[in-house]
Design a binder for these strands. Structure first.
Length: 491
RNA sequence: CGGGGUGUAGCACAGUCCGGUUAGUGUACCUGGUUUGGGACCAGGGGGCCGCAGGUUCGAAUCCUGCCACCCCGACCA
């Protein structure tokens, strides 16, 4: 039988769409731009949530929940914030339906118009800062370190499963601090948490940086981000962390009394990652046979497939499989023994490869005779025959090795597709022929940034945190520049 | 929201130009048998308001009008 999904090289975009659907991660919903996250896809998201949630708790944050609906008036309190989100808000105007008098189903009851319209949150700064006004009185109430797991809605023109959907799931952290320094330290700390998660759990190497003014979050003083590279060379922003200064404190009148009894506005941060990470995970590692999941995020880390003819054979294989399952589970490894009779082994191999299960153990009659099992790894597709007694230890180590290998493969890819460029012609040429990340000098003006993005479709992804001081000339204007910034075409 | 494309069985598509048998193929599904170390094979079977609503016609998947949905390309965005 033929392959389940198209090749990356033929049509990257189609490959992605098909993979998401065929691997059972998500599908389109009856509502335009929204998606149904299917059990397998949601299981991966839950793993991400578990790990991140732990990291947030370890850094002192608590979870809370704020409402989905935000009074329209809240939005207008922070000028930049409204401007940033006004164009993509869903608005609730009525609260009741009634039967159509002409018998054509239900209609909105015009009698039931809301006094004040409600905005479905595109992000929760406003409603949260409105609460903070009441929660914060004195320096003793600070810092306030809150996170929420929620859905948000941004009415997007063009959507793609996981990468950009009208409704998406995310976490948003919102903190308040006594000093600017403390808030800035929080902003950077959370950026580090995201980078750590991306690299060490998702196997996704990132560039940490600061957004230019034009790419900054609406209402922030400074936006930090992690940028990652997908296999088509395009950049994907995997997480953001914002230093809000006193913007929201002033807009919502959130003040605290200092030790000295003076009244001051508090300093804020917000930071988030979303189900977009699913898109990053898929596009960074997967291949033409399907998903490739890093073991730390794989809902099933090891699958055991029996190969047999008779019930007696199956019974003996099952005995071995059950002992492996028990032993591996006691080490915290998630194992599935697939003894379904409805599918053949070959079918199962292909299916688990499509789903990105990191390790497969096949046990057949020959193995039972020789005292061996066949162990296959998803990332390299290598197979090895291992003595039955060594299998558990081997698999346990292999999971680590796969996690490492997936990361270093992505890291190498990123290195190979990162270029340093010193003139505009070369810049355009590299973008056209190779793509990837380009480090180049920029004069620091929004005009130049806009021109470059207009002419080449590449944007400044960030000013890298590890930027080296280096005298140079802006590739576009020729004006002096003190360091290189990261350009790329982006998702 | 502008340009282009596509809507036919769960999925992928043919048939539409040029109207005329009972709307077809692959796959998936059900039954029986043989199979089982990389998506098995044979036989039989079920499944369609041909996107929706009008219109033209003796007759519409096919022609006309309107609407809707999805995909691709642009403008906007995590």
């Amino acid at each position: 039988m033929g392959k389940a999904i198209p090749n990356r090289s033929e049509d990257y975009s189609l490959w992605y769409n098909e993979l998401v659907k065929k691997a059972g991660l998500a599908e389109n919903s009856p509502v335009r731009g929204c998606m149904v996250i299917k059990p397998y896809g949601f299981a991966i998201w839950e793993k991400m949530q578990d790990i991140l949630d732990k990291m947030f708790k370890e850094t002192g944050h608590s979870n809370a929940y704020f409402p989905l609906f935000i009074p329209k008036s809240f939005f207008s309190k922070e000028a930049n914030h409204v401007e940033g989100f006004a164009k993509e808000c869903a608005i609730v105007t009525h609260y009741r339906l009634k039967n159509d008098e002409e018998g054509k189903g239900v209609v909105v009851d015009p009698e039931a118009k809301l006094e004040e319209e409600l905005i479905v949150r595109p992000t929760s700064e406003t409603v949260i800062w409105d609460s903070y006004k009441n929660w914060i009185q004195s320096y003793r109430d600070l810092p306030l370190l809150i996170n929420q797991w929620a859905n948000v809605v941004r009415w997007e023109m063009r959507t793609r499963l996981f990468l950009r959907t009208a409704e998406f799931l995310w976490q948003e952290g919102h903190t308040a601090h006594a000093t600017s320094e403390e808030a800035q330290a929080e902003t950077k700390q959370m950026l580090e948490v995201y980078a750590d998660f991306a690299e060490n759990h998702m196997g996704l190497p990132v560039v940490k940086g600061i957004k230019t003014e034009s790419e900054r979050f609406a209402g922030a003083v400074e936006t930090y981000c992690i940028e990652s590279m997908m296999q088509d060379g395009k950049a994907l922003q995997a997480g953001t962390s914002h230093f809000l200064g006193q913007n929201f404190a002033k807009a919502f009148d959130v003040k605290y009394a200092t030790k000295e009894g003076k009244e001051e506005f508090v300093w804020g941060t917000s930071w988030g990652v979303s189900t977009r990470l699913m898109g990053a995970l898929i596009m960074a590692h997967s291949d033409d046979d399907g998903l490739v999941l890093p073991p730390k995020l794989a809902p099933i880390q090891v699958v055991i497939v029996p190969i047999y003819k008779t019930d007696e054979e199956l019974a003996r294989i099952a005995e071995l499989a059950d002992s492996y399952t028990k032993e591996l589970r006691s080490k915290g490894v998630s194992v599935q023994f697939d003894k379904r009779e409805t599918h053949k082994p070959g079918w199962k191999f292909a299916e688990y490869e499509l789903k990105g299960v990191p390790v497969r153990i096949a046990i057949g009659p020959k193995d039972m005779e020789n005292g061996t099992v066949e162990i296959a790894r998803r990332d390299t597709k290598e197979k090895q025959t291992i003595n039955q007694g060594d299998a558990v230890g081997f698999v346990y180590n292999l999971l680590d090795e796969i996690q490492q290998n997936i990361f270093s493969k992505a890291l190498n890819f990123k290195k190979e597709n990162t270029h340093r460029v010193d003139d505009y012609e070369t810049f355009k040429k590299v973008l056209e022929t190779k793509g990837g990340f380009i480090y180049a000098h920029w004069d620091g003006t929004a005009e130049t940034e806009a021109k470059i993005s207009e002419e080449t479709k590449a944007t400044i992804r960030c000013i890298p945190l590890d930027q080296k001081q280096e005298e140079g000339k802006c590739i576009y204007s020729g004006k002096p520049s003190k360091g290189r910034v990261l350009f790329a075409k982006a998702y």
